[in-house]
Design a protein around this nucleic acid. Structure first.
Lengths: 338, 338
DNA sequence: TTGAAAGCGCTACCAT
DNA sequence: ATGGTAGCGCTTTCAA
């Protein structure tokens, strides 16, 4: 069963290739009757445009690329990425686009992937996340003139549309929640330093802490992994004056640290309150369940995809703002014991 | 900066298109010197073959497709799928292939996706998982003559290479572990009925239970989700003669059920032992940590990808067997209290 | 309204 | 060893 081409259809109907192409693309230039006959035959034959041929002649791959640039361990454990993939795929496929996916273990590989994709005309645009400090990606993509959308950045970026988050209000909400419970010394186990929003969150939390007089923020370094989070927590709790609450930059570190804290005899939330910046099943199923900032990642990814499609289509796309996260209070945050 | 083509290279070097194509594909038919000059110029220009042009003329997309056919909820919460994606992508990209990904919420959509991909010549083959009862996919793919590899099936399949698992020994191991701890009545919260391996596991567990005289297996239906698992657990525990141990077909149901059981006053493992068929971070971080069957999903996906590449390349691929799962004993299984 | 024909970039066959 | 050249399947321009 050979796969049919427009030539087969043309022969069958008794018209030219061009007529078939017009009819199939709803482009006018064919009489209604021939159009219908062409569509009928195409359907009968189960015809579908060859993606390669169409890409070659239209110079459009109808594909969008995403590089997941995190360690395999983080990719596996963080539901975040699958939600992104799912949100993107659903939106893209609804618009006739495909998703090209790649993993990259280091920044150089990631850059090389964009170069290759673009040179091979494999993608019409790319979606980026996790803006880093001194991030080389925007410059490269601008230079290559690759349509790109950044999502989850802190603010607008020259030449690249962004879907940005405002960490200001969230920081207020986090500190406000804990301060209201009587916490005065609050730890903050951060994500990787190289991520731009890590610094941003720290700054906003510090600002928010300053506004609630008497609240001190004690930052420490995590890396989004279980072990990194646990180590940071141990350092905070070992200090001469340990915090009575800790804010974790992701769910994995929060959950792992709670388990570890309890093994060390520190009861949560009686002696230590815990708040996670990302929500997920992890936070819901552990005991105590963890207070978290929830966020519809799939929907955010879907919006980013729409922005990118618009950019590809029209050449421009407006920045837009992510829905703010919501605080989901659970059992891991309670009144300070002191 | 227009993207260069082989014509640009040919002009620059002063040879024909064909010579350039030969040189770039290492195909002989060009003198070493011209070959080198061509490669130099190509590198200088940053040339990359247009994927569409190559696909069109070679009739090879250099792409493999995977449809993730589960509900968004399961996709999000089960680390399994991201591991599959990661394992596939790494292997494929190492061989110059890409991964085409799609989601499908129902079987009809999944079938339609294969039809479309194949008709559009978008993929050279597909990878399948989760063989269902009365699964229409093998027949369709055979009919379409799409190279395909099934992975995680229970046994060989006519016309389609499989990467199969032997649940026999695992079942022995599961029942053996619990029987040795003194459990005589063991619950089994299954996965969705429509999955072929659900029935298979049940059968193997029952067989194994029969072999350890005195052990009774009490199966109940789950669906891999938190709520489904919790409901099944509640039914089991509400029975006149509740089991002292429960085997869960995945980690999500196990973890959610432990949390729920404890809320109901059933202590784990003192009053109820719990064993999960899949291991993941979830099982490690909750307290008590959950005894589980661990399994290198990424490696399995990588093998499946290699099989598919071989099938695409040579037209044949041998069946192969998955590495058996390993029992990771943790705190959730302990001696029966009775 | 219709059809012929020129690409799109690459592969591969056939002369030279 | 080298260079024309004919496709691959589709889009699109230009005549008819």
């Amino acid at each position: 069963m050979k796969r049919p081409t427009i030539i087969d259809i043309a022969r069958e109907v008794g018209v030219s290739k061009a007529a078939v192409s017009y009819a199939l693309n709803g482009r006018g230039g064919v009489s209604p009757e021939t159009r219908d006959r062409i569509l009928d035959v195409a359907a009968d034959l189960g015809w579908r445009a060859s993606s390669a041929a169409r890409a070659l002649s239209s110079d459009r791959a109808a594909t969008v690329g995403v590089v997941l640039a995190r360690s395999p361990e983080v990719l596996r454990t963080e539901p975040f990425f699958m939600q992104v993939v799912a949100g993107l795929e659903q939106t893209l496929s609804a618009h006739g686009f495909s998703l090209q996916l790649a993993l990259a273990s280091d920044p150089a590989t990631e850059l090389e992937t964009y170069r290759r994709w673009w040179a091979e005309r494999r993608v019409d645009g790319v979606l980026l996340t996790d803006l880093r400090v001194q991030d080389p990606r925007p410059a490269l993509l601008r230079e290559l003139r690759v349509p790109a959308v950044f999502f989850g950045t802190e603010r607008p970026m020259a030449g690249i549309p962004v879907l940005w988050v405002d960490e200001h209000d969230i920081a207020d909400s986090a500190i406000g929640h804990l301060a209201a419970l009587g916490h005065r010394r609050i730890g903050h186990v951060q994500g990787p330093e190289e991520l731009r929003h890590t610094a941003r969150r720290k700054r906003e939390l510090r600002r928010a802490a300053a506004e609630f007089s008497g609240v001190t923020l004690v930052p420490d370094r995590g890396d989004y992994t279980e072990s990194g989070g646990v180590a940071a927590t141990a350092r905070l709790l070992d200090a001469p004056e340990p915090p009575t609450a800790i804010i974790f930059d992701n769910d994995v570190m929060a959950v792992a640290s709670v388990a570890r804290a309890e093994e060390l005899g520190v009861r949560v939330p009686a002696e230590l309150s815990v708040l996670a910046w990302d929500d997920s099943m992890l936070c819901r199923v552990v005991r105590p369940a963890i207070t978290a900032f929830s966020h519809d990642v799939g929907a955010a990814a879907a919006s980013a995809a729409l922005m990118l499609l618009e950019l590809i289509e029209t050449g421009v796309a407006d920045d837009s703002r992510l829905q703010p996260r919501k605080l989901i209070a659970r059992a891991s945050t309670a009144a300070a014991s002191g």
